[in-house]
Write a protein that binds this DNA or RNA. Structure first.
Lengths: 133, 133
DNA sequence: AGCTCACTTTACCTTGACGTCAACGGAAAG
DNA sequence: CTTTCCGTTGACGTCAAGGTAAAGTGAGCT
């Protein structure tokens, strides 16, 4: 029998509150099994949560994230749907590519500042040593 | 004489409303010159706006963005400040590095799905052709 | 039976990031 | 002088993403 989890376990594991997880359910981001009135989470729910968290780290809104995870386990069979699906994928790809470029740019700038800081620091240190002799 | 801009020009250029730009000023993200009661934006303001927009694309809050742009034109002279500054830079770097990895991961997955879609599409097309002969 | 514990729903509250609307200022054009 | 623009401040509205508090359910222990 495959492993399942309670809401508190998942919350702890992902570092969010149970409220948050229920909220996501309310927004149709996940749909756990119910056993009586309790929620029971399977592996697929965990995977979805994983995707959601990644989406959040990337700054997407819950609506966007839902669209993405829905893409994830959609299985378009008709050709028209398939085309639409491909379009969405490419749109997503475009956005992420821009984000990547943004990040690369910032990382470069940070690296430059970092180097500059380190230079300054070592200068001031040797300066201090010399002054204390 | 160096070029300047009005609020509406900048708003159009960055694809936001004037309200948004004033809001950023209210939150101390920019501080344009005043000529009478009108705001006059110089190149440095444009650059700051550029940084702000990038920050937003990367999903940072306005508070975080202010911290970042302040870092940008800060010039820490004391050694203690310099160390703190370096720490902040490295923290930022860590976050962005994680984001980059997230993006790379997602891009990979998208690429796979894309390829799969294209395969399916071309199959269905040749299938349709064959069926129409 | 009473108690605890984990979980549930319902409902209102908060914070961030703006949108919207009202009321007004000044300059430039007809 | 009136109209037309563009701009201003200030107050209130709104939407997303949860926080928080209240009150209840059910299983299991003692």
């Amino acid at each position: 029998m495959s492993e399942t989890w309670g809401i508190a376990e998942l919350a702890a594991e992902f570092g969010v509150t149970t409220r948050t997880i229920r909220f996501y359910e309310d927004k149709d981001l996940i749909a756990p099994e119910r056993r009586g009135q309790r929620r029971v989470y399977h592996l697929r729910d965990k995977v979805r949560l994983q995707l959601i968290m990644r989406g959040k780290r990337l700054g997407f809104s819950l609506d966007e994230i839902r669209a993405m995870v829905d893409l994830y386990d959609a299985d378009p069979t008709e050709v028209s749907q398939l085309r639409l699906f491909l379009d969405k994928l490419r749109e997503r790809k475009g956005l992420l590519t821009i984000q990547r470029e943004d990040i690369d740019q910032v990382l470069k700038e940070i690296a430059a500042r970092e180097a500059q800081c380190e230079r300054l620091l070592s200068e001031k240190q040797t300066g201090a040593k010399r002054a204390s002799n």
